[in-house]
Design a binder for these strands. Structure first.
Lengths: 217, 217
DNA sequence: GACTGTGAAGTAGTTCACAGCA
DNA sequence: TGCTGTGAACTACTTCACAGTC
């Protein structure tokens, strides 16, 4: 039933939903659930069921016509979206936020591992209690290349964020999660960045609420 | 030059971009910059210049034909998107993440204030060092209504996140920033939620990288 | 009978291209 | 001349509706 799929381009929003769905399925599986319907997924993701079915249909090999087997669906998504290729990540900036992100249970799903932390401050390298290896910034290139790390997390202060991002890219990093309150400009299409821009979130909510009030009238 | 604008519906992605642009303009203004061009904004936001011009044109009152005066543009965006209406926020869950978010400088722009923190654990209410007022969960409704808070942040563990979200909505909260690794289902169109779903971000990057590699071939 | 899968239709968002303004 | 502003053209995404499957 597997069809020729390699030329199908999945819309970016669909990729985002499927990536999230994957984590959802992981959680449900851990709770002991084995089967799920598109309507149920839709409710959990806050999206209509036909959107879910369409998203899954881009993968061209999921269905049995009667709900989805969670473990199978999970594997299809992981395989198709390439979740098993880039498991290792590193983090730059071992301040309080860096600490929380790398230790707080459940923040990154169990298929990813943040295996290396970097900081300029030798004090922080000593005082941080963690399972991962800690290095000074000077080791960035060496470690990233040796471990073949493709994903980097930025938790440094505002003024150095841009430089760190470009350093990471120079070292071969292809995906960045940026927590610093700075927008990072990237001029190449082979590097992807996700800005977790908390100040902006307040504004976005404020705007949505306000638009809603306005259009209601 | 102000035109009738109240019926124009701004696309959601444009609202998101403009909200982010606002924070960017705040930063640039602090650095002493007073004027900017659409091409420059585009570079900083990672978006083509015509998208920026189009976004700004939805506001129907920005331009002089020769770049933008930062302070004026800022005010127009803030006024049009209603940034000055909902300044107060509260946070539920005073664990480590809650602490980092409410104290780390620069995380929320200076027009918003997280004025109240809630937690179930009386220990945490005592031990947390912060400027905001701390309360037990039982005070949720009282405080939110008294202070007329419309935005809530969720930093509680996974298992209580959904309940907290619905409690917040029952108390009149209209916008939620959810940091817990749980997707929250909301069945009403007057409440907006932004999920900061870190585990999902890894998958999203992984998928983008992998799609890129695949399509390159 | 109840669900999925998916082309086709419809809608939303983006890009173009050029008129208008400083 | 070099920028913005914006309808119009285009593209991407979502929704529909129903045939196919278990």
């Amino acid at each position: 039933m597997k069809k020729d799929v390699d030329k199908v381009i999945i819309p970016k929003p669909a990729i985002v939903r499927l990536s999230t769905l994957y984590v959802l399925l992981e959680n449900l599986e851990q709770e002991g659930k084995t089967k799920i319907f598109s309507a149920e997924i839709g409710k959990l993701l806050g999206v209509p069921s036909h959107t879910i079915r369409k998203d899954i249909s881009f993968l061209r090999q999921a269905g049995t016509g009667n709900g989805y087997e969670i473990s199978i669906l999970k594997n299809i998504i992981a395989e198709y979206l390439g979740f098993n290729k880039y498991k290792k990540a590193c983090i730059v900036g071992m301040g309080r936020l860096g600490n929380v992100i790398t230790t707080k249970n459940g923040f990154y799903s169990n298929q990813y591992a943040v295996i290396a932390g970097f900081d300029n401050n030798p004090e922080k390298l000593k005082s941080t209690r963690t399972d991962m290896d800690l290095y000074p910034m000077a080791k960035l290139k060496e470690v990233i290349e040796r471990e073949n790390i493709k994903i980097g997390i930025i938790t440094v202060p505002q003024d150095s964020a841009r430089k760190v991002a470009h350093d990471l890219i120079d070292c071969g990093i292809k995906g960045i999660i940026n927590f610093s309150p700075v927008l990072i400009e990237i001029n190449r299409d082979d590097v992807f960045i996700r800005n977790i821009f908390i100040a902006g979130e307040f504004n976005i909510l404020s705007a949505f609420i306000s638009q809603y009030e306005k259009n209601k009238l």
